[in-house]
Amino acid sequence: MDATLVADALSKSFTTGAVRTDVLRDLSIEIAAGELTLVSGPSGCGKSTLLAILSGLLRPDGGRAFALGQDLARLEPAELERFRLQHTGFVFQGFNLFPALSALEQVMLPLGYLGLGDALARRRAGDALAEVGLGSRMQLRPAELSGGEKQRVAIARALAKEPQLLFADEPTSALDAANGQIVIDTLHRIARTHGATVLCVSHDPRLVGHADRVLAMEDGRILADRRVAASRSP
């Protein structure tokens, strides 16, 4: 199995005032397509920083990050934006939906920037919303949706781009158990059916059982890397 995301001896530190904190220490990992990889660990263990570097949002201090075989350090900022636009989707803890737009428009928006025509964007957005179970609520604005529904709109927004890489940062933290379950199942299904690389970062222990692979992180290092035998088929 080819790795679509590769971290090679990554290191990163932040300086706050006189205090220097090493967030990632010589971290190497390979992540494959077609499965949901969960990075879990306590707050401040560096898991979000790892996600940011592998998704091209952040540059490491040392080491190299490859995504889809591309050395991210070699890309100019504009090329990096282009790379993200074409290949990546993001789901964040906050849903970050524009209050003025309906669910359908939220999903169509990035597709327009991708250069898709209105008709195609509308069809793809509709399909993505149907896939996350919101086919009947496409015309509603965020204020009319529940938290779980909003997160599913955010997932549809990431999914409609048909990205090869999907990054999720604490996607279930703001949700109750039932909605959290729906969201993680959706992410899992996306990995399986779309063959996408799904990298999910969370400290939510409920998610462990739903991942194909769990990386336990602490103090900027990966302590354990295990496959979850019980992971269900789509």
Partner: peptide
């Protein structure tokens, strides 16, 4: 007021120019 939404678009690859 919409900075998080703009940041999300930026993460999704929508450049600052747009």
């Amino acid at each position: 007021g919409s900075i998080r939404e703009y940041a999300t678009l930026h993460a999704l690859g929508v450049g600052f120019a747009r």
